[in-house]
């Protein structure tokens, strides 16, 4: 399995620039968050501007979708955290040789990292 052409890690200029851009974003998370907040604010404003044709009654409520998205997301997270309290076990819970417990390298197809 080692005879296939290895992908070259030649310093590709386009990719390199893209990665640097991402590096900057990761280094400045507040700017990303601020951008997101602005877009969200705009969307909230838009909610008042267009004419609604609700197919389901609740859709007619003002700011239904923004509130729904935010609240439900938080609910999912807190629900999952509660669930984890119940279902979490050690990785070798079922057997010492179950998939979860195997060493990371066992799935490698012969390629070096």
């Amino acid at each position: 399995m080692s005879d296939h052409p290895a992908s070259p890690i030649t310093p590709d200029r386009a990719t390199g620039r893209f990665v640097r851009m991402l590096d900057w974003l990761v280094a400045n998370p507040m700017r990303v968050i601020a951008g997101l907040a602005i877009v969200c604010g705009l969307l909230a404003v838009v909610d008042l501007l267009y004419e609604k044709h609700p197919s389901v009654p609740v859709e007619a409520l003002p700011f239904f979708y923004p509130v729904f998205g935010f609240v439900i997301y938080a609910l999912v997270i807190f629900g999952a955290k509660t669930l984890r309290l119940i279902i979490r076990r050690r990785e070798d819970y079922y057997a010492p040789y179950s998939i979860d417990a195997e060493t990371p390298n066992s799935h490698m197809t012969g390629e070096q990292r």
Binding site: C40, L43, Y50, K52, Y65, V67, G69, F70, Y73
Partner: peptide
């Protein structure tokens, strides 16, 4: 318009919740 806006509202506000949490 309605469909695109509502969908974006829901998804982006959920994203906002993620950032917040």
């Amino acid at each position: 318009v309605a469909h695109v806006v509502t969908q974006l509202q829901m998804l982006l506000f959920a994203l906002l919740a993620f950032v917040f949490l």
